[in-house]
């Protein structure tokens, strides 16, 4: 199995939030692996738990969130040591070393991710000096080099500017530079292109792919947009209400989706060659996290559920449909049975 080669192996990750209304499950029994140099795309609607699950990889969750004790986030450090991030204390030194140094993160809104009170350079140099034993001048040079590498014009000038003085695309480039300057083994990209124009979006995706080739880091790319994911990811994980619906290589998922939710997502993508056809949204809304459906979490919106009792009572187990392609749906058992009967 791929277990040994993965730089990050998440197993049975469950996360719940204690709120005034009660305990809310945000992520439920999620498992995935991240191979070095590869990109895993996590796709799902807002509220599907994709952002929460990636924040938990660096223990960046708010204080009312709790990771279930049987969860494990096994990370292999650059030195080859294995660390279960889920078990680390919030204040441990190891966690601070992993944050930024081993796993780095870029965010949806670079304008909000940089503090307006400090220059881009100040915040980059701060990161560098937390992880490398270098002088301020050396760190500054490293920051300038990285800004140049991500395509910033005039990096010597930009480094002393504030985030609010840059354009949206430049800000995201600066964000990427500040994450990659520490040469992390894993880069978590939380909807990094959502706030950008489509043309800039393409530039940023190209840049990320290019930098991945150069530095060889694994990327965990989160997006609500399957079209964006299909451009950058090697593998896809489709999430709904905190559960993995389907996972597999990106081509297989796009061409041969097994789960009704994935099928719905693909149908909902606007296509330029079918402008005359109406868009097919998935009916219904994502339910409130306080009212988690019994059985399969997707059953209230699933076109196949009304005539199947099982969907409302039993939680489907993920089954392998092709090598590396797994989906959690009761329909798949039926298909298997049909094949056996034949």
């Amino acid at each position: 199995m791929a277990e040994d080669s993965a730089v990050l192996r998440v197993s049975n990750l469950s996360i719940s939030f204690s709120t005034d209304e009660g305990l809310v499950t945000a992520v439920d029994d999620l498992s995935f692996g991240l191979e070095p140099g590869k990109t895993l795309g996590i796709v799902g609607e807002s509220g599907s738990g994709k952002s929460v699950s990636t924040k938990s990889l660096m223990q960046l969750l708010p204080s009312n969130a709790a990771i279930a004790p049987n969860s494990s986030i096994l990370y292999q450090t650059k030195q080859g040591k294995y660390i279960d991030i889920a078990k680390l204390d919030r204040r441990s030194k190891t966690l601070d070393q992993i944050r930024g140094g081993e796993i780095a993160m870029i965010f949806q809104e670079p304008s909000a991710a940089f503090s307006p009170l400090y220059t881009i350079g100040n915040q980059m140099i701060e990161g560098i000096r937390l992880h490398r034993n270098v002088s301020r001048a050396q760190a500054r040079q490293q920051a300038i080099d990285m800004l140049e590498r991500v395509g910033m014009t005039n990096p010597e000038l930009r480094i002393d500017q504030y985030a609010f003085q840059l354009s949206g695309g430049m800000r995201q480039r600066a964000m990427i530079a500040s994450a990659l300057v520490m040469r992390p083994a894993v880069l978590i990209a939380d909807e990094p292109t959502t706030a950008l124009d489509v043309t800039i979006q393409a530039q940023i995706l190209d840049l990320l792919a290019e930098l991945q080739n150069e530095f060889g880091m694994a990327i965990l790319f989160i997006s609500h947009d399957l079209a964006v994911i299909s451009q950058i990811a090697d593998d896809v994980l489709v999430m709904y209400l905190g559960r993995a619906m389907e996972t597999g290589p990106v081509r297989t998922i796009i061409r041969d989706p097994q789960h009704p939710y994935t099928q719905g997502l693909i149908k909902a993508i606007p296509r330029i060659d079918r402008l005359d056809q109406p868009l097919l949204p998935i009916p219904g809304d994502i339910p409130s996290p306080l009212e988690r459906p019994q059985g399969c979490v997707f059953h209230p919106r699933c076109p196949h559920a009304p005539d199947r009792l099982r969907c409302r009572t039993d939680v489907p187990v993920a089954a392998e449909t092709d090598p590396h392609h797994r989906a959690a749906c009761h329909l798949l058992d039926e298909k298997v049975l049909e094949e056996v009967h034949r």
Partner: peptide, 8 residues
């Protein structure tokens, strides 16, 4: 002094 936005 505290807020560069005021300055700039």
């Amino acid at each position: 002094v505290l807020d560069p936005r005021v300055r700039l």
